[in-house]
Design a protein around this nucleic acid. Structure first.
Length: 121
DNA sequence: ATTCTCACA
DNA sequence: TGTGAGTA
């Protein structure tokens, strides 16, 4: 990983900045984090801090949502992407369990109607 | 002035 | 998802 990428992964932007850069509401931005789609850091005062990479991902999520996908579909996409990145590490296995566990928990109550799993990446 | 969590007439 | 309340 180069220095440039390192800078892009530095969490230094407050949610206010993210709002201006993405035209999304604080509610939506925080929600993506709650769903494990982005992982902003936290300051000692519990303030969320986003990186430029987070901005890219948030913008991407926004597009996917506009294209009709739901949080679950997007989760699957990033889940598969990470499987490809780390071919078979122990960390992946652990994270895989977390993703699935989280998936099942949320699947228990809400939306059972949206069952179009088309976007296989 | 900003952001955070929580909850819903 | 919006929004208002009550904080930090």
């Amino acid at each position: 990983m180069g220095e440039k990428d390192l800078r892009k992964s530095m969490s230094v932007l407050t949610i206010g900045t993210v709002i201006r850069l993405t035209s999304l509401t604080a509610r939506q931005i925080r929600y993506y984090g709650d769903q494990g789609l982005v992982f902003p850091e936290r300051t000692e005062s519990n303030q969320r801090l986003y990186s430029l990479n987070d901005i890219d991902r948030i913008l991407e999520i926004k597009d996917y949502l506009d294209e009709g996908m739901n949080i679950h579909d997007i989760k699957r996409i990033y889940y598969k992407q990470q499987l490809r990145k780390s071919k078979k590490g122990e960390l992946t296995d652990v994270e895989a369990r977390n993703y699935l566990k989280d998936d099942f928990l949320n699947a228990g109550r809400l939306n059972k109607s949206n069952d179009f799993r088309s976007n296989r990446l």
